[in-house]
Structure formats: structure tokens, C-alpha cells
Design a protein around this nucleic acid. Structure first.
Length: 415
RNA sequence: GCGCGUGUAGCUCAGCCGGUAGUAGCGCCAGAUUGUGGUUCUGGAUGUCGUGGGUUCGAAUCCCACCACGCGCCCCA
């Protein structure tokens, strides 16, 4: 038997209804914020990600699906979408179009990691980017947008973590200070931290080993090392978020794994997702366009939601079975009724009512099917009903049945 | 990539001090005569016991490898 590739999966009904619900709610929110969809290719030149995401990140150095095309070009399945969006922005000179570019996307990403609950090799991200401004006002609205998407999809109690990682001026100074401090204390820390102290000092801040926490707490904080412009930017972001009534937690140790982030970074976590408790991550990337070789500056900020994790977070209170539920199971008895039923089904569907035509010949059999499908109503149409000009509508939950004229039937569903 | 754990009917599982699987529960299919489901009763189908090797007269049961999933690490959405 051929089975789905490791780390990939099939999303079947009724679970797929949950995905449709999430995507429909998401698109609605984006429309109200005047964000519009961009669809970029699933694969790009490898160099785009190497330069955009960062050669030294785990994503680029060991998680990408990369191969050589027939002409020798190195091609990679996208591990994330921000680099592609910026590439498209530059390529199509979107900076020449008036207004900020407010774009969103929904689609599959690919990373070759060890599969785990909430972590797949093909996974879907819902993301947004606002390109063309470095104003902190944009940061605050982006964060509001991100939370609004989550809440409208049904996420309860999203927890916002906020930080600033500085810019090309102040971050290197901080990393140097951090590294120097670590030289004195790293020998008392876990093996991973000893290694990271030299290779990627920032990641030490993210260590979860309990014994290391006291030491980490004593390490310098990036927030105390921000340059004046970055500190001012961060203050404005915070006050703008507060003005929106959004709760947040400053997490100065929040370190993102993509090299392009500058200044504002944020993350949303949610309980009951296991080790992969991060449902959304985002931040500003003012130098990304330039690092892709563009002479067009394209300061921006964005976020991406792990759609798989978002679905996991809501499936406890948003039931796929309810979303996919059948309204009417239409039981037609006899040839005349079948033809009549086809037209009735068309009228009901035109009103947005879901209708399934019975393929069963016996009423008893059909009722059993209606019950198993968990239909709200069974609608019986036979010679008796045709002769009387009525429809027998049975409420499957209460068992009540009544004969209704066509107009009464159509209006019965409007309630 | 590393460590731990799990892998038996569609699903949840029992069997696991070795002798070729269970009347298990749920589900599925069929029946209890006429155009009415959910309860009940009766009958029925379905498994290369994750895959491949090894030990043994004999393995679902022991050993090894691989695969998949879960948890943790790493990383991130």
C-alpha cells in the first residue's frame, strides 16, 4: 500500500469543514482591514530563502526541500512566504502604486523537520504583510489584525508576547555584550547553552532548562541595549497597543529564528498544543528587501499563523460536525416524486439550504440514512404529498412532522 | 538530527511468563411483511497482529532493523 509521505496528511470531511471555517473567517477579517490576497509560487530559487531567511538559520541550513532543476538552477519548496512576498513586491514595483501594500496569503509551506503533534513537513500558514512604512503605528495595527483573526476563528484567550530585537545598529552591540557575559558563566550552564554561547548567543535566552533560568535572568536584556530610535519605536508600539485595549506580556527573551527580523517581534501562544504551543509569530523586517539585493527599500512587518495549530486550538469548541451538518435529507418515492424533488432541491439550495437527495427506495431505509447523516430535517415527497400539494417535513430531533405548502416550506427555513 | 514510548478488526482496546486472535465495546451490513429514524432483538462481514529479518519444532507474544505515530530535545507556525 502506498501511504501519505511522512509529515504530510489528508484532511478529510468533516474535519475539512473546520479548515474552511477558519479560512472564511480569516478572509472576512482581512477584507475589513483592507488586506488583499497575494498568491506566490510554491517553489522559488533557493537563493531567495538563503538570503532572505538567513543562511545560518536552521530552516535554511537543514530543513529545506531543495533540488536542482534540469537547467541546473537550485530550486526550493518555500519554507515560509515573507521572502516570496517581498520578492514579488520588488519584482512588480509595487512601491510605485499609491498607498501601503497590505497583503495576505494562505497556503502550504514545507520544512523537513521531525514530525510531531502540531508540526508537519507540509503545513499551512495564514499570513499578512504590510510593506512600505516603518511607522510603529503599523506595528500596532498588525498586531491587532493578527489577534482579530485568531479570535474570529474561535481561539479563546490568545496570549500575546511582545519584544523588540533592535536593528542593525544596536543588536550587534547587544550580542557582543551578551557573548562576553556568557564567557564568564557558560561553564555552569547546560551543554546546549555552552555550544550556543559561541554559535548563536541569542538563543541562550530561549533555553528552557530549569537550572539555567537563574543565570539567564541575570543576563543583559536586549531592551536595555536598544538604540534611541529603536527604544522610541518600541515605546510607541506599546502605547498604541494599550490604546486598543490589547493585553500583552513583554518577553525580552523572545528570540525569533529568522534572521530578517528587526525591532518589533511578537508571538501568540496557546495552551493545550503541547510543545508546539506557538500559534502565531511575526515581526518587522526593515532590511529584508535590501538583503535580497533590492535598491528599493521596502520596510515592512508581518505575521504568520500556523493554520494546523490554529485548527487544533479551536476544535474543542468549534465542532466540525456542526459546520458540515446536512439541513435536509429529501426522500422521494417514485418516478414522479423524483422529478418533482429535483426541482424542490434546486429551490432550497438557492436559499442556501444544504440538501441531499435520497437514493434509498424504502422510507424506512431512507429515514435510517437521514438519521445516520445527522440531518436536521427529513422531507418526504411521495404520491400522497404530490396529490395534496404539500411536503411532509420531519424535524429529526423532535420527531415532529407537519405538512407544509411550498411557500410555507421555503419560509420555514428563514427563521 | 538525538532520546523515550506506542503500533492487534473502520475506531477504542484485551490477548503479550511463546503453541498459528477476541461471544469485547462502538461502528458497518442484513433481517424483525404494508410510507417513517433514534431504543430493543436476531444474524453477518472484516484482520498478511506496522513492515522485514532472526531465535525456536512453533512468535501477535522474545531479539534486531526499518517505517509510522505520540512525548521530550532541537527548531518553529
Amino acid at each position: 500500500m502506498i501511504k501519505a509521505i511522512r509529515g504530510t496528511r489528508d484532511i478529510l470531511p468533516p474535519a475539512s469543514a473546520l479548515w474552511n471555517h477558519v479560512e472564511a473567517a480569516t478572509r472576512h477579517v482581512f477584507r475589513t482591514f483592507h488586506y488583499h490576497e497575494i498568491r506566490t509560487p510554491i517553489f522559488e530559487e533557493t537563493a531567495l530563502f538563503a538570503r532572505g531567511v538567513g543562511q545560518d538559520t536552521d530552516i535554511v541550513s537543514k530543513e529545506m526541500y531543495t533540488w536542482d532543476d534540469r537547467d541546473g538552477t537550485s530550486i526550493t519548496l518555500r519554507p515560509e512566504n515573507t521572502a516570496s512576498v517581498i520578492r514579488a513586491y520588488i519584482e512588480h514595483r509595487l512601491d510605485q502604486i499609491p498607498g501601503l501594500k497590505k497583503l495576505y496569503y494562505i497556503g502550504p509551506m514545507f520544512r523537513r523537520e521531525r514530525p510531531q503533534k502540531g508540526r508537519y513537513r507540509q503545513f499551512s500558514q495564514i499570513g499578512a504583510e504590510c510593506i512600505g512604512s516603518d511607522s510603529p503605528v503599523i506595528d500596532a495595527e498588525m498586531i491587532e489584525l493578527a489577534l482579530e483573526v485568531l479570535v474570529r476563528c474561535g481561539v479563546q484567550n490568545p496570549h500575546l508576547l511582545l519584544n523588540s530585537v533592535g536593528c542593525a545598529t544596536c543588536r550587534p552591540r547587544f550580542v557582543e555584550a551578551l557573548r562576553e557575559r556568557l564567557q564568564h558563566v557558560k561553564h555552569t550552564m547546560c551543554a546546549d547553552c555552552q555550544r550556543r554561547a559561541d554559535t548563536n548567543a541569542l538563543r541562550v535566552l530561549d533555553c528552557k532548562v530549569p537550572e539555567d533560568q537563574n543565570i539567564i535572568d541575570s543576563l543583559p536584556s536586549i531592551l536595555e541595549h536598544l538604540c534611541q530610535p529603536c527604544a522610541q519605536h518600541f515605546e510607541t508600539v506599546k502605547s498604541m497597543i494599550e490604546a486598543r485595549g490589547i493585553d500583552y506580556e513583554i518577553r525580552s527573551r523572545l528570540v525569533r529564528g529568522l534572521d530578517y527580523y528587526t525591532r518589533t517581534t511578537f508571538e501568540v501562544t496557546h495552551g493545550a498544543l503541547g510543545a508546539q504551543n506557538s500559534i502565531l509569530g511575526g515581526g518587522r523586517y526593515d532590511g529584508l528587501a535590501e538583503s535580497l539585493g533590492s535598491r528599493i527599500p521596502a520596510p515592512g512587518i508581518g505575521f504568520s499563523i500556523g493554520e494546523d495549530r490554529l485548527v487544533m486550538a479551536i476544535e474543542e469548541h468549534v465542532k466540525a460536525e456542526d459546520l458540515a451538518r446536512l439541513d435536509v435529507f429529501l426522500i422521494a418515492l417514485g418516478d414522479a416524486a423524483l422529478k418533482h424533488a429535483a426541482l424542490l432541491a434546486r429551490d432550497l439550495r438557492a436559499q442556501g439550504i444544504s440538501v441531499e437527495l435520497s437514493a434509498d427506495h424504502k422510507v424506512k431505509r431512507a429515514m435510517e440514512t437521514a438519521n445516520k447523516l445527522n440531518a436536521r430535517y427529513a422531507l418526504i415527497l411521495g404520491d400522497n404529498e404530490i396529490a395534496a400539494g404539500v411536503y411532509a417535513l420531519k424535524d429529526m430531533a423532535s420527531g415532529e412532522q407537519q405538512n407544509l405548502s411550498k411557500s410555507a416550506l421555503l419560509s420555514a427555513f428563514n427563521a
